[in-house]
Structures are given as C-alpha cells and as structure tokens.
Amino acid sequence: MSSSGAVIHRTARGRRLRHVAVDAVVYVLLLIGLLSVILPFVYMVSSSLETAVQIGSLTPQFVPSPLTWTNYQQVARELPIARFYLNSAIVSIIITVAQLLTASMAAYAFARLRFRGRSTLFALYLGTLIIPSQVTLIPNYLIVRELHWHDTYAGLIAPFVVSVFSTFLLRQFFLTIPTDYEDAARIDGANHWQIYTRIILPLARPALATVVILTFLASWNNFLWPLVVIDSPSLKTVPLSVTAYQDQFAIAWGPLMAAATLSLLPVLIVYVLMQKYVVEGIALSGQGGR
C-alpha cells in the first residue's frame, strides 16, 4: 500500500476527521444506552443501603438518604458468609481451570483434527445442550449419591469439570484462526500437542478469556445444584446467601439486596480483569491483508 505521499496525507486526514465524528456519534449512543442497562444494577446497590421503609417506597430511591449499613451487618450476623465465599471461590476456580483445559483440548480435536465420527460426536454434544438442566438434575443427583460424592466438594465440582457450552464456544473460535501458522509449524515437524499449546492457545486468548468470564460467572451463580447436593452449612455457596432471604410469606429485601450486591463483586472483578484479554488484538494482526 504505497503510492504518492501527498495523496495518502490528504485522505488520511479526511479519514481521521470522519473517524472522530463516527466515534462521537457511537459514544453518545452508548451513553444513552448506558442508563437503561445499569439502572437495575444501581437500584440493587442503592437499595442494599436502604432501610425497609425506603425499599417499600412506591418510587425507588436511587440515592438513598440516609445511607445505612444495617443490611450488610444483618447478612454478616445471620449467615457464615465468609465460609460461603471460600467454598464458592474454591469450587468456581477449580471448575474454571478444569474447563479451560478439557474444553480447549476437545475443541482442538473438533476444530482441527480429522477423525471418523467427528460430526456425529459433535452433534451429540450439541444435542445434550438442549435438554434443560431442571430435568437432568435428579438423574445426576442419583449418580452423585451412587458415587457417595453428595455433601462434598467433589460433588459440587465434578459435574462441571466438562462443559459442552465451553467446548462449543472454543471450537467456534478455533475455526476462525487461520491455518497458516500451523501449516508452517507442521512442516517444521511440530506435533498436535505442540500446535495446540504453542499456536492455538496463544492465538485464542480472547476466546479463552471469554470462557473464563462465562464459566466463572456460571459456576459462581450456580444455585440449583449446590442446593440439592449439599446438606452441611459448612459447604454451602454464595447464591444460597441470596435465596436465604426469600421465604414463603416474607422476603427480606434489604438483606437480600446486600447479599446480592456482595455476591456480584467477585464476578465483576473477574470480568474487569479478563475483558482486557478479550479485546486484546491477537497476534495475527501482523498478517492477513495479503
């Protein structure tokens, strides 16, 4: 892309001006949308700092006055919240790491290897996604009890070490990675494991970061499975701190909002940390426009 310097200069400036204008329009639109997406989020945080009287108000107050911490104190007093966090952290981290490994390996096979029955097996994987978890819950619980893993960390973790969702996600992303690098590596005698670890995984960092975000979020928020598989209070997880306040006749909205706000913090932190990898221009920017 080299031609006479003056022409490039003129079009480049015009392009930059247009760019700024487009950026400004996009920015304004995004800011307008912002209000509608975060209003419920703001509402949750602000009502966690309100008294029952304020929450019961017909018109929500988005800036509580006066501010009160009593809901957080009540949650801390009534629930072993630190223990819940420890359990959730252990479970979610192990599940996330395990899924990164199992799903990326299987995705490599589905996206890059040629073997008999590949499409049939993949269709089988996809097919199981359709059956809702509400109906496999009880068969799975019976399996876990058969294995005597109920009321243990193993029971909380084992069913989620593998995820069809993550496998599918990574397979789709691997398919968008150009084969050029691998072809070169293969000529240099690289085997599949080397291609997987040295080429595919580094190139797939945005996708892997996405898997971390979504898997961590899903296992952190997982509610029904821990509820069913755990009896001991010492093994309960964070989502149960929110539902603890949803009783038959009365929902304690203040403590519920406080527990909900607290339960979101780790997910937000993981998201903020990971999103920079999601949007990291991947190594292949160097090539392409041939």
Binding site: L137, R145, V228, D231, L240, A244, Y245
Partner: peptide, 22 residues
C-alpha cells in the same frame, strides 16, 4: 443435625431427596 433452608430452597432439595430416598 439440622438441614435448614429458606422456603425457596427447601422444595427442590426435598424432592431430589425423595427421589434418592434420602
């Protein structure tokens, strides 16, 4: 040994335990 839960949490757990006879 108590197994205490909120109303919301009680029923899925109870029914799963019915299935497992536990």
């Amino acid at each position: 040994t108590p197994r205490l839960a909120s109303w919301t949490d009680y029923w899925p757990k109870y029914n799963a335990d019915v299935a497992a006879h536990s």
